[in-house]
């Protein structure tokens, strides 16, 4: 087994345990299963935004992330793939979820495969994934996989159908396929590596 992949799982659920975390874990498992079929092992690292809620607000005010939030951001930006799950509040992703995305360096997620999930009380809001969450991650130039998974109360109620499980399985395979073909993450890049030489800066002015 030569390749190990890192999957970062961001969940914005507020209760503990939360249905968002439940969904996130199942999406992560489905992705890891898919990668295993491709002969790759997966390390899953979960970032519960609830634990960083105060630090996220602090980072918005001070403009730098503190201790454990900085580590969480490194986990997310350094991962080979990303699962992101938010509860839907008032028609869209939660404020905490958006605030976390706001403190990520806007260039740091470029090209990263992302699987989106959301939870809510009623399936009437399921399109929020596609009209709000997907454009947000598209703006950050991530590679959002086609299937995103919305889980409403009905889905957890277990009416005997395996619809949710099938959606999770399909989404996980899509993320696994996207991750499997990527070159392995190389770790920390030189933060100033693309700074132009001054002669170039002078010439361009």
């Amino acid at each position: 087994m030569s390749t190990r992949r890192t999957l970062a799982v961001v969940t914005a659920g507020l209760s503990q345990p939360s249905s968002s975390r439940l969904l996130a874990d199942r999406l992560a498992t489905a992705t890891a299963d898919g990668l295993l079929e491709a002969g790759q092992e997966t390390d899953v690292e979960v970032v519960e935004l609830r634990e960083h809620a105060h630090a996220i607000v602090d980072a918005m005010l001070t403009r730098f992330p503190s201790g454990e939030l900085a580590t969480a951001l490194d986990t997310v930006t350094g991962a080979d793939g990303l699962v992101m799950v938010s509860p839907l509040f008032t028609t869209t992703y939660s404020g905490l979820f958006k605030s976390f995305v706001d403190v990520i360096d806007p260039d740091a997620l470029t090209g990263k495969p992302v699987l989106l999930g959301a939870t809510g009380g009623t399936s009437r809001h399921s399109l929020a994934l596609d009209y709000s969450m997907r454009p947000l991650l598209t703006y950050l130039r991530t590679q959002v996989v086609p299937t995103s998974v919305f889980a409403a109360t009905d889905d957890w109620a277990g009416d005997g159908s395996d619809a949710l499980a099938r959606r999770i399985g399909r989404a996980g395979r899509e993320l696994a396929d996207a991750v499997a073909v990527r070159p392995a993450a190389t770790g920390q890049e030189d933060p100033f590596g693309d700074t132009p030489d001054f002669a170039q800066l002078l010439g361009g002015s």
Binding site: T62, R63, F64, P191, F192, T195, P196, D197, F198, L201
Partner: peptide, 21 residues
């Protein structure tokens, strides 16, 4: 970093005002 590069190019001083960083 462009400003650090500018300071370096001219051999001028570079002050990093790190009070909030």
């Amino acid at each position: 970093p462009e400003i650090a590069e500018q300071a370096a190019y001219y051999g001028d001083g570079f002050l990093h005002n790190n009070i909030f960083w």
